[in-house]
Design a binder for these strands. Structure first.
Length: 469
RNA sequence: GUCCCCGUCGUCUAGCCUGGCCAAGGACACCGGCCUUUCACGCCGGCGACACGGGUUCAAAUCCCGUCGGGGACACCA
């Protein structure tokens, strides 16, 4: 059995969107699962639309998702010399012919066909001409069969039959000499010895044309698998108006690459009831057999949940290193070493769905100028008796070993002394230490904050306490 | 318009190929409860689907036909 080879072949006319990322992922997973190779090829034959920025965006996205390719990236724009011999071969064998019809003329044919209720297309007027010289301005068209059918064997949806009369003689080489997509993709996939072409369903109707060319060129036809498209919430194809569709936008929003891969894989593919997969599990279990054939709706809420599942399984030291750049970005001081940071992030590890959300929720660990939430102050701090907080601060000051259990002991002591329930003390203290009424557990938070800062914040808050009962 | 693909809870899906184990399972979201120092987490429970109509069969989500609905393709774009 020959080596399994898959490929991802995006056209660089924008960022890598969700759908493209999933196609890349499926190709990557299939290759890894089968022990094959994954090739990256940039389809930039359209010079007008292809931009260096797009290429970079695609590369960045793939790197972020850690979809490592084994070969490439190959650029079609650099391979034009490769294609000419194939065009010549088809010209020589009569599989293709020269055509001098102008785009305007072809356009008219299309309108005419449409008006007559036929599929719009070229009418073949240059098919049998022999008077066109290679030097005349012309395109090269592929001569499609006048009858018969072409079947596509698709690994996801089975056999699909197309009537050859459905196809007009399409252009494989433009007037300027550059080859077009449907032709180039055949040559490239053949030359790169791709065994499995996994791509979006929007390519399904191109496939029979390509198969016809494989035959005309006497090349072996690869396996095809057309994965269903990803839709927006309203059921139409995912686009900008559905919100963020570029993969890197999710990186910037604080999603983990493995979470993104997990979510994307599960959108259209399944392995029983399992929802959460590590990269290794994805590779181990992925197979085209379990890729569904119906389109799926992209659900940001589920993505969020998947991200949360991955986030909470991260070792706190790893989480800390993910979070560190975000802290620097915000120019917050780091009052401790990496070990301290790990402890700090551990307190909110199960309280945030994204890295960004997580970082933004713990500004008080870094910045000593507390931003008080007026409502929280009014509701909790202002109602506390100054004596209570003073008492707590005094007791806390005497703690030698600043640890969670010791802090808790002090709280218990003060609570008993004042005959109060924890809530009556914890909430005012929470506001004093963080400025708000929401935070991790009061003891663990205080432990992370450190004795000096806790005492300082308590002292600073006492004037705000105006309770009398 | 023509051709192609698709159709299980709001969403992602299991089941469909190889009919009976399905009075259709899991997950997200939503609702309620428990836990509780806040917020979360967690746990328990609830809501909720085989698009429709025929047919085949002792038996159909599963097989066949039709209808309807959604999507895609018909470029000197990819």
């Amino acid at each position: 059995m020959p080596e399994i080879r898959t490929r991802f072949a995006p056209s660089p006319s924008g960022f890598l969107h969700i759908g493209g990322a999933r196609t890349a992922l499926f190709n990557y997973l299939l290759a890894r699962n089968l022990g094959g190779k994954f090739v990256l090829r940039i389809e930039d034959t359209d010079r007008e639309r292809s931009t260096p920025e797009s290429i970079q965006a695609i590369l960045d996205s793939m790197e972020w998702l850690e979809l490592a390719w084994d070969e490439g990236p190959f650029y079609q724009s650099e391979r034009s010399a490769e294609y000419q011999p194939y065009v010549q071969r088809m010209l020589d064998s009569g599989a293709a012919y020269r055509c001098t019809c102008t785009p305007e003329q072809v356009d008219a044919m299309r309108k005419e066909a449409k008006a007559a209720g036929r599929r719009p297309g070229y009418n073949g007027s240059c098919r049998n001409r022999t008077d066109i010289a290679a030097t005349d301005p012309h395109v090269v068209r592929f001569r499609t069969p006048d009858d018969g059918q072409t079947g596509v064997k698709d690994l996801i949806r089975g056999g699909v039959l197309f009537e050859n009369t459905e196809f007009d003689d399409f252009v494989i080489c433009r007037t300027d000499g550059t080859p077009t997509y449907n032709f180039v993709v055949v040559v490239d996939d053949a030359e790169m010895r791709i065994t499995h072409v996994v791509r979006g369903e929007d390519h399904l109707s191109n496939t029979p044309k390509q198969i016809l060319m494989y035959h005309a060129l006497d090349l072996s036809v690869p396996e095809f698998a057309h994965v269903p498209l990803i839709l927006g919430t309203d059921g139409s194809r995912l686009s900008k108006r559905h919100g963020a569709t570029g993969v890197t936008a999710y990186r910037d929003m604080g999603y983990l690459p493995d979470a993104m891969n997990n979510y994307l894989a599960r959108l259209g593919w399944s392995h029983g009831d399992q929802e959460i997969f590590s990269r290794a599990e994805l590779i181990e279990h992925f197979s085209l057999d379990h890729v569904g054939s119906s389109a799926g709706v992209f659900d940001p809420e589920k993505l969020e949940w998947v991200n949360f599942q991955h986030l909470k399984e991260l070792p706190s030291s790893t989480l800390a290193s993910e979070v560190k750049p975000l802290i620097e970005e915000r120019q917050w001081p780091l009052p401790g070493d990496d070990g301290w940071l790990a402890k700090a992030v551990a307190t909110v590890q199960e309280r945030a769905k994204t890295l960004v959300e997580l970082v933004n929720s713990i500004k008080y660990y870094f910045v000593d100028e507390i931003e008080f939430d007026p409502k929280a102050v009014a509701k909790h701090l202002a109602k506390a008796r100054p004596a209570l907080l003073t008492d707590l601060a005094d007791q806390l000051a005497g703690v030698e070993d600043w640890s969670e259990p010791n802090i808790e002991d002090v709280f218990q002591y003060v609570l008993t002394k004042h005959e109060l329930k924890l809530g009556k003390l914890a909430q005012p203290v929470r506001v004093a230490l963080t400025g708000g009424s929401v935070s991790p557990g009061i003891f663990e938070m205080a432990a992370v904050l450190g004795k000096d800062r806790v005492l300082a914040r308590l002292q600073a808050a006492i004037p705000l306490a105006e309770g009398t009962d």
